[in-house]
Simulated assay, not measured.
Amino acid sequence: MARERLKGKNIVITGASGGIGAEIAKLCAASGANLVLLARSIDKLRQLESELEQKHGVNVEVFQLNVANTDQVREVFDQIFRVIGDIDILVNNAGFGVFREAHEARMDEIKGMFEVNVVGLMACTSMVLPQMRERHFGHIINIASQAGKIATPKSSVYSATKHAVLGYSNALRMEVDHFNIQVTTVNPGPIATNFFNIADEKGTYVKNVQGFMLQPEFVARKVVDSMLTKTREINLPRWMNMGSAIYVLFPRLFERIGKKVLNKK
């Protein structure tokens, strides 16, 4: 059980101020894990810190961090190591998206998505890898997306960042396998969080998909249940992942038939 595996473990979660990041933190705290919560909104983190420490009696540390700032990533992780010592699990959850057609995507948005979703994730991972390799123990969980498997209209840049996360994770998994370090990618479909406040300015995508949007608590439970196990991928919902398998086998047919359905943003 996750409760037994996670008790006393040190878990770092980026993007922990809300959404699935906050839900993962709550479940980990309930399992007796010590937490380091990172996000840009320090006020939300402090509120969550107080809630979790009072309710579960675990140690919670919070740091303000914009993962796009790689210098700040190094400074914050150096502080984390001084405060708690080794990191057992890193959950790279920070990320955002903006849905626009490729010719409308602004360069600042393109750079921003890659800096947060890809470079920031790599920067945080690079900070924990040396001590995990030395200890021959650890778990890196990267929150990717079904968009990393099936690129859809109006999400060309976001899909590209999540393709990059999957490629990085797959290579990393092979690199660290003999160091007893697990690498898990989480590939959810749309989740009912504040993500779409930025991604879907017009609200059309949420309106079209709200019938099958995932709840953050459900996704968080799947992530926490996978911690310190040999779980390669978590694909949610399962029926959506079937689409990615069909896409790999019959890409031209999938795009021809599916483009009208997928173009709902």
Results as ranks from 00 to 15, higher is better:
K230F: 11
R46E: 14
R256M: 15
S50N: 14
C124K: 04
P237A: 10
H136R: 14
E233P: 01
F77T: 03
E109C: 12
S31V: 07
S159T: 07
T204K: 13
G18A: 15
G57C: 06
M242A: 12
N241H: 15
V128D: 00
A25T: 02
G258R: 08
E75I: 05
L48W: 00
I257K: 10
L90R: 02
G19S: 05
A220D: 03
N194W: 03
I89Q: 01
D86Q: 12
N194D: 14
E51G: 03
V98G: 01
M132W: 03
F96M: 11
E134K: 14
V206E: 05
M240Q: 09
D200H: 07
A25V: 06
I150Y: 05
E115Y: 05
K202V: 09
A147Y: 06
G57W: 07
H139W: 07
N241P: 00
G243F: 11
V128N: 02
G203H: 12
R46A: 03
G120A: 07
N197R: 14
G138I: 04
I181F: 05
A2M: 13
K222I: 01
Q182R: 13
T185Q: 04
E255K: 13
L236K: 05
I143N: 02
N93D: 10
A29D: 05
V118R: 00
R40V: 10
M227C: 15
A29W: 01
V73D: 00
M242C: 12
S155R: 09
L48P: 03
G167I: 07
K260Q: 13
A144R: 01
K7W: 01
T184F: 08
N92A: 08
S155Q: 14
S126C: 07
I84T: 10
E201T: 15
F77Q: 01
I42N: 02
H139C: 08
S159P: 00
I87T: 00
I234Y: 13
V219Y: 00
F218S: 06
P130Q: 06
N92P: 09
Y247P: 06
E51C: 07
M174I: 10
Q79A: 05
E104S: 14
L48N: 06
M227D: 00
A25C: 09
F212D: 13
F114M: 14
M107D: 14
N59R: 12
